[in-house]
Each structure stands twice: as structure tokens, then as C-alpha cells.
């Protein structure tokens, strides 16, 4: 149940920053990153992001933020094979680091 997904090079990690003191559309938009596009440091960050057990979204307190992490086996998949929510409070710095360089989704 807590087994992390097997990372294949074509897989895509989607990171969404939810909640916080304010809602800014540009920062709230999901961001994606393909594993094959990562350099060595980013691959380490990738692995750190995937260490969390799958968990349903829980209601954080006012203005508290959480990261929504989703793993898709390929860029064409619409359903994640793995996902979890991590309270910013508990989050590894790797999540924010990877989010900062990931590509924002355009609607």
C-alpha cells in the first residue's frame, strides 16, 4: 500500500501548490516535470517527492498549504497511478525545489 511507484523515464510528476495565505492563479496552477528531463540533482529531488505514502486530502487549517503530488506513467495519461497530499509543514524541501523549475500547465 505504501510502495512508491516504479519510476519510468516517460513518467510525469505533477505538483500543485494548494492553499496558503493567498490564492494566486499563476502559483496555484499545476506544474509538471518528466523524469527523463531531469538532471542528476533533480532526479534525487524526484525520488524525495515520491517517498510519501498515498494519502487522501485532509482539511488543513486556515491558510495552511499542502502539496498535491501526482504520478502519471506517461504524458498522455489522464489518471495518476499514484498521488498524495503533503502538508507544507511536513514537506521535504525537494518538493518546493522541483516545483520551482517544473513547467506550469496552460489551460
Amino acid at each position: 500500500m505504501v510502495t512508491p511507484p516504479i519510476l519510468n523515464p516517460n513518467g510525469v510528476l505533477k505538483i500543485t501548490r494548494e492553499g496558503g495565505l493567498f490564492y494566486a492563479p499563476g502559483l496555484a496552477a499545476p506544474r509538471t516535470m518528466m523524469l527523463s528531463a531531469c538532471n542528476a540533482d533533480q532526479q534525487m529531488q524526484f525520488a524525495a517527492c515520491m517517498k510519501y505514502p498515498p494519502q487522501k486530502k485532509t482539511s488543513a487549517g486556515p491558510d495552511q498549504r499542502s502539496w498535491h503530488l501526482q504520478w502519471f506513467e506517461s504524458i498522455d495519461d489522464t489518471t495518476p497511478s499514484w498521488q498524495t497530499w503533503v502538508n507544507e509543514f511536513d514537506a521535504d524541501e525537494a518538493i518546493a525545489a522541483l516545483w520551482a523549475v517544473a513547467t506550469p500547465e496552460t489551460k
Binding site: 494548494e18 492553499g19 495565505l21 490564492y23 494566486a24 492563479p25 499563476g26 502559483l27 496555484a28 496552477a29
Partner: peptide, 25 residues
């Protein structure tokens, strides 16, 4: 980077969304 401030000032522009706990901010 931030985008445009999405806040409405009138109920005719009320934003229905799942994001932001249903648009609390």
C-alpha cells in the same frame, strides 16, 4: 508570475471552483 488577482467584488462574478477550498481566498 502571480497571474491576475481573481477576486470578485460582486456576486454576479462569484467564482465556483474546487481550488482554494472552494475559493475561500
Amino acid at each position: 508570475m502571480l497571474g491576475k488577482d481573481p477576486q470578485p467584488g460582486h456576486t454576479k462574478d462569484f467564482v465556483r471552483t474546487m481550488a482554494d477550498n472552494g475559493g475561500v481566498h
